[in-house]
Structures are given as C-alpha cells and as structure tokens.
Design a binder for these strands. Structure first.
Length: 423
RNA sequence: GGAGAAUUGGCAGAGUGGUCGAAUGCGGCAGUCUUGAAAACUGUUGAGGGUCACACCUCCGGGGGUUCGAAUCCCUCAUUCUCCGCCA
C-alpha cells in the first residue's frame, strides 16, 4: 500500500510512474486524496467533540465528589447531545476510513525508475544470460515423457488422489526433489539466511499484509470453515513474521529462508504450456526473504540476484535474467527480476525464480518499521525471491541432462541424491 | 471436544467505575563518577492520528454494550494456561 504522505507530496510523479503499468491512476489518486481530506475533517470534528465530552465528564466527577449533584445533573444533559454527535461522527469516520482503505488497496506499487514500460512479457528486458544450451540426443523428450519413461513422476496417480496439477513423485524422482530442497536450503543458509519452518496456512490478516488479498483472492485455496488460506508462497508466512514489528536498526539486514509447498488455484489455465511440471496446483519452493533499511534495499536486491545466479551456475543450467516491464510487474513490487531456465526439449524458457523489492509497499500494510538514528519510526523495505522453485528446475534438469544412458544428475546434487543417474 | 483461570507498555507485574496512558522492577537510551569498563547515582524511555509547533484525540487481546465517565461492569469472539477426553 502506498503511503498517504507520499501520494500527497508526489502526486504527479506517482501518476506518471504508474503509467508504466498501463494504469491511469489519476482519478483513483484524486479519490484517495479527497477521502483523506474528509477523513481528516471528520477526525478533527470528532476529536473536538470527544475533548468537550471528556472535559464535562471530569467536571461531573468533581461535582459529585463535592456533593453538588444538582449541578452535575445539569451538565449531564449537556453531554447527551455531544454523545449523539460523536456517535454519528464515529460512523462517518469509519465509513470514510473504509472507503479510503479500499481505494488505497486498488493502487499498485510505483515501479522503480529502471522498470521498462510495456504491456506483457514480450516487453521484459533481458539483462543477463549464462550457460550453454546443450545439444541433445536424437529423440530427446520433454520432461513429462521422461517422467513416464523412468517412472519418477506420476501425474495420473495425482489426478486420482487429488486432481490435475497434483503430481506424485516416485523413487528417484522423489529423492531428487528432496535433494534439491536440501541443496537450496544449504546454499541459502551458507549465504546467511536463517532457516525457518512456517505454517502452510495463513489467516486473512497475513494475506492482506503481503498484498495477496484483496488483489489475488481467487488464486488462493480458501478453507471457509476456519477462514484460512493455503499459502501460494512462503513469502506470506515468512514476511508476516514481522507484521506489527518495530525492528532494531542494528538487526538489519533480516534474512530468512524457508522451504514450503505452495498451493495455487491457477484457475482457467489449461493447454500446451501447462503440461507436466510447467504449472501445478501444488509445488515445492525454497524462498528467501529480507527486511532491509531503505537505503540498502537495492543493494540487497542485487545480492539476491547474484545469489540465485550462483546456484544456477552450480547446477550448470542455461538461464537468463529478465527485468520485468511495467505491464508484467506484480501488483506489490517496485522492481522484479525473473530467472528463466531454458528447457531444451520444449524449446522454451521456464520461469524458475522471481526476485523483487517491494520497498515500503508491504511494510506499510504490515506496519513493519524500524527506529532510525533520530529515534523516529520509519517503514522498512521488504524483499523476497525464490531460491528456488522446484518443478521447473526439475524439468530443466531432466530435459537438459538426458542422455542415451539415462538422466545424469548435476554434480553438486550427487551427494544429496546418493545416485548419479536416473535410468 | 468438556470444566476452570487468565490476557495490561520490550519483558515482569500493580491497578476492580472518575486528575490512569497506566505504579514498581528489569531492560533500553543519555549523563555523573572512572584512564576505560563494571557498580552506584541522576534523568529519560509505548504506538497511531493531528499540529509549523503546541493543544487535543484514540489505543490496557479483538468486537459490541452499560454509564456523564470503563483497563476496571456486562455480552461475544480469539488466544494462553491448568485438569479431563482424544491423538501423531
């Protein structure tokens, strides 16, 4: 959520910047500012009314104590009107505050100056690529065929148990999956991230805190009986650990990593591009999250990007990094780098990581602050990134490492797997 | 799931209808003393709204109610603890 102060002070700049998202926010911003004005006016009015009524109450108390009940009763009558007033004003205030909140929820984060304008993923800017695209054997297969051939992932079995998009990993497939999780966690903790295990369900307040609600309501599995949501990413529980916190400036940077399964409804997306592991309702992901001092957050973003690069380098997978354009940028993000691995057998790029700086957008909703050197509370910056998402990394490994003798295991993973080949 | 008790500032813990945003202790910060540190002493120390700055307003688990007035009384929800039940 954008800060009202920022909107008030930089109205034109914000409207201009939001155009990169193909959003004309002028009228929305106008609404917000107007609502804020009325909110303030009502608040002032209410405050004055309450002040009067507080004063009278005190006087009444004193009168009673000194035995002047009659005079007290006169004052009591006066308070009745004030009470009606304040009741009405409180209602008005609540209505206006809710409207203001709802309007603010509709405004996405302001893109960073480096974000290119653009409508869709085609306008994303490739900023880096590395790794050789392997020359595959004749008759190379896409991963869903390989999964069947070596009996390591069973999509049909998952359909029987739960539905489409809930695969069953078997044997070496399951082991490779677990190896990847451990490998990623080890890499992240070695880089200083604190390993945590968090709930896989979150309440509504957490969903609002990181911005999935109300924006992506339909994308999450919701359990109405207990009013809980299955997490679509560890970002939600991990970042919400710091909701309503005032962190000590000395504790920056706060760095956390967590493995969780992720659940996404992905309503209405079927077809060739979602075959196999390309898009699932349940998948595994290891996430990294940081809470940073505002002056350090872009440095931190760079270091997260470097960190993910290092992992892909070790896995020897060909990948590229994209700077997302305004049209493709997530609602809450100011700047996002996507990592894509090249799936040789499918001849296409698959997104495997998304690393973002949210600046104060989430912190504002989370009320996540720190005390600066002047003793004033300021909003912190939050960042997160996948390090990494499992299924497409798995797809990349299966497809790029296939040989006539089977699927070779990347060297760094062999100690984690306990085997060097799937055949 | 059943019965009982509780929920107060970073922590511990007073406060049961009126100068209570809240005693006290610990912790934090600043200072005195010291070559430096510790100890001791002194001062300071919640959050949000509002204001140029004050004033002022809100917040004692959440929500609602009673009252001129609520941390204190009532209702409700949540959470925690104890006992019982169930259980990986």
């Amino acid at each position: 959520m954008l800060q009202l102060n920022a909107i008030r002070e930089n109205k034109e700049a914000i409207i201009e910047a939001l155009k990169k998202r193909n959003l004309d926010a002028a009228s929305l911003i106008e609404t917000v500012l107007n609502l804020d004005e009325s909110r303030k006016a009502i608040q002032t009015n209410l405050d004055n009314t309450l002040a009067q009524s507080n004063k009278l109450s005190k006087e009444i108390g004193i009168l009673y104590k000194t035995g002047k009940a009659q005079e007290a009763n006169v004052l009591k009558e006066e308070t009745a009107k004030l009470k009606d007033n304040s009741k009405q004003l409180t209602e008005d205030l609540n209505t206006t505050a809710t409207e203001l909140q709802n309007a603010l929820y509709q405004i996405p984060n302001v893109p960073h100056t480096s974000v290119p304008a653009g409508n869709s993923e085609e306008d994303n800017e490739e900023i880096f690529s590395e790794g050789n695209i392997p020359k595959l054997i004749d008759g190379a297969l896409p991963h869903w065929e390989l999964a069947k051939k070596y009996d390591i992932i069973d999509f049909e079995l998952g359909v029987k148990i739960a539905g489409a998009g809930f695969p069953v990993y078997k044997g070496k497939g399951a082991r490779l999956q677990r190896a990847l999780i451990n490998y990623f966690l080890d890499k992240n903790t070695a880089a200083g991230y604190t390993e945590t295990q968090v709930p896989h369900v979150v309440n509504e307040a957490s969903g609002y805190g990181t911005g999935q609600l109300p924006d992506k309501e339909g994308q999450m599995y919701h359990m109405p009986v207990d009013d809980l949501y299955l997490i679509p990413t560890a970002e939600i529980p991990v970042t919400n650990m710091f909701r309503d916190d005032i962190v000590n400036e000395k504790d920056f940077p706060v760095t956390v990593t967590a493995y969780t399964p992720c659940f996404r409804r992905e309503a209405g997306s079927y077809g060739a591009h979602v075959r196999g592991l390309n898009r699932l309702h349940q998948f595994d992901k290891v996430e990294i999250v940081r809470v940073e001092h505002p002056s350090k957050s872009y440095e931190a973003l760079d270091s997260m990007v470097e960190h993910v690069k290092g992992i892909l380098r070790e896995l020897k997978l060909p990948y590229r990094i994209l700077r997302l354009c305004g049209g493709d940028l997530g609602f809450t993000s100011a700047l996002t780098f996507d990592f894509e691995v090249f799936s040789t057998a499918q001849d296409r790029w698959l997104e495997i990581s998304s690393v973002s700086n949210f600046e104060t957008y989430q912190a504002n909703r989370l009320k996540l602050r720190f005390k600066d050197e002047n003793g004033k509370n300021q909003l912190a910056h939050t960042l997160n990134g996948s390090s990494l998402a499992l299924p497409r990394v798995l797809a990349g490994i299966l497809e790029n490492y296939q040989t006539e003798d089977g699927i070779m295991i990347p060297e760094v993973l062999i100690p984690y797997c306990g085997f060097d080949k799937i055949d």
